[in-house]
Amino acid sequence: MSASTAVIRTYDLTKRFKKITAVDGVNFTVHQGEVFGFLGPNGAGKTTTIAMLLGLVRPTAGSAEVLGHDIRRNLSSALRRVGAIVETPAFYPYLSGSDNLCIFAHILGDEVEARIPALLEQVGLKGRGKDKVGTYSLGMRQRLGLASALLGDPELLILDEPTNGLDPAGMQEMRVFLCRLAEEEGRTVFLSSHLLHEVEQVCDRVLILNKGQVIAQGQVGELLSQAHGVEMRIEGAAQAAGILTGLDWVQNARHEGNRLHVQAPPERAPELLAALAIHDLFPSEVRPVVSTLESVFLDLTHDAEETPDA
C-alpha cells in the first residue's frame, strides 16, 4: 500500500449516470484498523461509491485504490481480501444458509469451507444453518450476509446498511461485533448506515455525503465538538454576538431575535457570561447544547439543501 495505513483512498471519484451526477469528485482515505462511517441521506451517492470501490460500477472520472490496488486495473486480487455487503444481502432461497455460504466458499478456496460452522455460530445462526434461506427473516439474512462477508477472512469489510432489519438486541450485538472485528482482529470496517446513533458509537471517523459531494469528514469527536455550544436568551443579542465572536476560543456566535447560539465548549459557559457581564449584558436563560451525530448530520445536510451550489 502506498501510504502504510491507507486501505481505501479515492481521488476525485466521480460517477455520472447520463445527466445525473451521483458521485461528484469524492476524496477520502480509510486507514487500516479503523471503523469508518459513511453517511448521507437517501440518494446521496453512498451505494454508488461502494459499488465503484467493489468494481460493480465503473467511475466516470477519478480513481480509487482498495488495499493498494487501482480499482480500474487490478481489483480482482484486492477483492479476494475484501468482504462486502452491498444493500440487502442476496442469497439463493432454495438453498440452506450453510449451502449458500458453501457457494461462496467454493469460489474463495477449499479451505474456506471449514470456517462455515464457526461463522454461523459467530453471527448467531448456529441452529438455523440447515434451514432454507427462503424461511429466514430479514434480520437473519443480514446475519448470514455478515457471515458471508467474513468467509474469506477479509482485511477490509465494506458493509452497506448491515443493521437493516435487525431488532434492537441484534443491532447491539452487531455493534459489539463490529467493534471487536476492528479492535481485536485488526480488520478495517467501512460502514455505511442511516443509523447515526450506531455510527456515533462504533466509528472512529465519519464522512458525510450529500448530493454526491463530501460535506464533512473527520473524527467523530471533532465533528461533535464543532457542533457543541451554548444557547442563551438575552436582550441585545446582536451586541452580545459581536462581543463573543471576539473571543479567540469561540468559533461562532449567531443570533435570531433575542436568542443567541454560541459555538464554544459548553463547559466554558461561565467565561462567556463573565465576558458579557463586563458589558452589562445578562442573559435571562443559558443552556448548554450537546450535539449528537444526528443533529450534526441534519444541520449539515440541511445547510447543503439551502445552498444548492455548495
Binding site: G55, R80, Y92, P93, I107
Partner: peptide
C-alpha cells in the same frame, strides 16, 4: 437470470471473480 433477479450477481462479483 436468477443472479440478476435475486441480486446475487453483486455478491459473486465482489468476491473477485472476473
Amino acid at each position: 437470470g436468477e443472479d440478476y433477479t435475486r441480486g446475487t450477481l453483486r455478491s459473486l462479483l465482489t468476491r473477485g471473480i472476473g
